[in-house]
C-alpha cells in the first residue's frame, strides 16, 4: 500500500468516527418563516473565533444529502460552526427530498428569503463572519441570494458543482416549457404543469410562475452574476461532472474565476476525489476564515 493510499484510509476511518461524534452533537434548529411555515437546519456550533459556514443543498434535496453532510462534518470536525438548512420548498418542516412530480409551488424568491432568514439566524447566533458553500443548484441559490442581497456578514462564497438549471446553450425542450409556462401564467397562473428543470426531465410539476422563477438560472446568468460578486468566491468542480455543460470548467476559467478542479470527481464528489474535494473546501474555508480574522 502506498503512502498516499494509507493516508486516504486513515482519513476515511477518521471521518467515520467523527461523523458518528458529529451526529451525536448535531442540533436541529427551526426557523419560522413569514409564510407561516418553518424550516429546519442542521446546526453545528464551532469555535467562536472561526467563521460560520452555511452549506446549502442542491436541487430538491435536504441538508441530509450526503455531499452536504460530508462538507458539514468536515468543517464541524475542524471546529467551524456549520449551518446546513433545508429549503422548505413551501413544506412545513420539510425533512425529505421532493420528487420532481411533487407540486413545486415554491419559487427562487422563496429560497432567497429562506437563505437570508438563516443568515440572519446565524448572525443572531453571534456569527458575524459567514462563509457560504453551495452544492449544485444550492450554489446558484446562494449566487442568486448574493446577487440580490448585500449582506456584509458574508465573507466568502464557495460554489461547488455550480451549473445552470437548464443548458440554455444547448437547449432541448426547456424553451418550449418556458413558452408554455409563460402562456399559462397569462391565462391560468394556478395551473400546474410539468416541465423540465435541472434533472427533472418533463416531470417537474409546478405552477408557471414557480417554474419560471428558476428557469432564468442559465449559464449566462451564472457567468454574468458570478462575475459581479462582491465577496470572494471560488468554484470547485469535479472534472468528471457529467451534470454540467460540456467545457463548463473551461468556460468559467475563461472568465478568470477561481476554480478548483478535482481530478476524477463527479458532480457529488463521491468516490475518487472525495477527500481532495473536502480538503479543498476546508482549505478554502480556512483561508477565508483566516483572512477575516
Amino acid at each position: 500500500m502506498t503512502l498516499h493510499a494509507r493516508r486516504h484510509v486513515f482519513k476515511l476511518v477518521a471521518l467515520l468516527l467523527w461523523s458518528l461524534l458529529s451526529i451525536a452533537h448535531a442540533d436541529e434548529v427551526e426557523l419560522s418563516l413569514t409564510n407561516g411555515i418553518s424550516a429546519l437546519a442542521d446546526y453545528r456550533k464551532g469555535g467562536s473565533d472561526k467563521a460560520a459556514v452555511l452549506v446549502l443543498h442542491g436541487f430538491l434535496q435536504t441538508h441530509q444529502f450526503s455531499t452536504v453532510q460530508r462538507i458539514v462534518n468536515e468543517l464541524a470536525d475542524n471546529d467551524y460552526s456549520v449551518l446546513a438548512p433545508t429549503l422548505t420548498l413551501r413544506i412545513d418542516l420539510r425533512k425529505k427530498s421532493l420528487t420532481c412530480d411533487a407540486i413545486h409551488s415554491h419559487t427562487a424568491e422563496d429560497s432567497t428569503r429562506e437563505i437570508d432568514g438563516w443568515i440572519q439566524w446565524l448572525k443572531r447566533q453571534g456569527h458575524q463572519r459567514i462563509v457560504l458553500i453551495g452544492h449544485s443548484t444550492g450554489s446558484i441559490e446562494l449566487l442568486n441570494y448574493l446577487n440580490r442581497v448585500n449582506e456584509p456578514a458574508i465573507a466568502h462564497f464557495i460554489a461547488t458543482s455550480i451549473g445552470p438549471n437548464w443548458k440554455s446553450r444547448n437547449p432541448k425542450s426547456t424553451p418550449d416549457d418556458i413558452r408554455r409556462a409563460e402562456a399559462l401564467l397569462a391565462t391560468t397562473p394556478n395551473k400546474i404543469a410539468k416541465y423540465s428543470l435541472s434533472f427533472c426531465k418533463g416531470n417537474y410539476a409546478a405552477p408557471p410562475a414557480a417554474f419560471l422563477s428558476y428557469i432564468r438560472w442559465t449559464e449566462d446568468y451564472i457567468l454574468q452574476h458570478y462575475g459581479k460578486l462582491q465577496v470572494p468566491a471560488q468554484i470547485i468542480l469535479g472534472d468528471s461532472d457529467l451534470f454540467l455543460p460540456e467545457n463548463w470548467a473551461e468556460t468559467l476559467q475563461a472568465q478568470q474565476f477561481d476554480i478548483t478542479l478535482i481530478d476524477g470527481a463527479n458532480h457529488f464528489f463521491t468516490g475518487t476525489g472525495e477527500f481532495e474535494f473536502l480538503d479543498s473546501v476546508l482549505a478554502a474555508v480556512v483561508r477565508a476564515s483566516d483572512r477575516l480574522r
Binding site: N35, G36, I37, R90, I91, D92, L93, R94, K95, K96, L98, A102, I103, S105, N190
Partner: peptide, 11 residues
C-alpha cells in the same frame, strides 16, 4: 410532507 404541504397551502 406533501400532505403537510396541502395543509399549509391547499391551492
Amino acid at each position: 410532507d406533501e400532505t403537510y404541504q396541502q395543509f399549509a397551502d391547499p391551492t
